[in-house]
Amino acid sequence: MPTPQTLKNHARFNPLFHFAIIPLLFLNLVFSIYITIHRWPAYQHTHLWWIVMAIVFFLMAGDARGSALKTQNRIIRLEERLRLATLLPPDDRAHINELTTPQLIALRFASDAELPALAHTTLTQRLEPKAIKQAIVNWRPDNERV
């Protein structure tokens, strides 16, 4: 049985991306530079093109990862706004849109019981995401985040 998610272990790695794709792309870049340096007189333009393409592959991987994270953040923002709309008292409900995306992402870990008080504190004291996560007593895991 996996250990329950907490503040200390909630960060996630995508094994395929972090431990396979990125290291292989890095090795490809290093190899391209090595070959260019050691075989410079022959096929100068081809070797330089390999370096450019190795950099492009890195940028493509980073952009794909960034797009996936932006999409996840937008979905979390929507889910948490809907959740807050059902759990907050009317006075605080009017201020849901004042919460930033990073604050909403941090609030997703709060249980339904403690969310109204924590959201009110976040709205009045402008808590940072790290402070929000540290204030959570009953952690609500998000095991779907990559």
Score class of each variant (00 low, 15 high):
residue 64 A to G: 09
residue 100 T to W: 04
residue 99 L to F: 13
residue 94 A to P: 02
residue 67 S to M: 10
residue 71 T to M: 13
residue 62 G to R: 13
residue 99 L to G: 03
residue 81 R to H: 09
residue 87 L to S: 06
residue 60 M to E: 14
residue 79 E to H: 11
residue 66 G to C: 08
residue 72 Q to N: 07
residue 94 A to E: 13
residue 100 T to H: 04
residue 69 L to Q: 13
residue 79 E to Q: 12
residue 95 H to S: 09
residue 87 L to V: 11
residue 95 H to K: 12
residue 74 R to A: 12
residue 63 D to Y: 05
residue 93 R to E: 08
residue 94 A to F: 03
residue 64 A to T: 11
residue 99 L to Y: 08
residue 99 L to C: 05
residue 91 D to E: 14
residue 83 R to A: 04
residue 100 T to S: 05
residue 71 T to G: 07
residue 97 N to K: 05
residue 63 D to F: 10
residue 91 D to P: 06
residue 62 G to Y: 13
residue 63 D to C: 09
residue 75 I to P: 09
residue 75 I to Y: 14
residue 83 R to D: 03
residue 65 R to P: 00
residue 88 L to Y: 05
residue 81 R to S: 11
residue 89 P to L: 00
residue 78 L to R: 07
residue 65 R to V: 07
residue 60 M to W: 15
residue 66 G to F: 13
residue 65 R to W: 14
residue 81 R to M: 13
residue 86 T to R: 09
residue 60 M to G: 11
residue 87 L to G: 06
residue 100 T to F: 05
residue 86 T to Y: 01
residue 85 A to Y: 02
residue 83 R to M: 11
residue 89 P to C: 00
residue 81 R to A: 12
residue 95 H to N: 12
residue 90 P to E: 04
residue 86 T to A: 03
residue 91 D to R: 15
residue 91 D to L: 04
residue 98 E to Q: 14
residue 75 I to C: 10
residue 73 N to Q: 15
residue 80 E to A: 10
residue 97 N to V: 00
residue 74 R to N: 12
residue 94 A to G: 01
residue 88 L to C: 01
residue 73 N to Y: 09
residue 76 I to W: 05
residue 77 R to V: 15
residue 84 L to H: 07
residue 91 D to M: 02
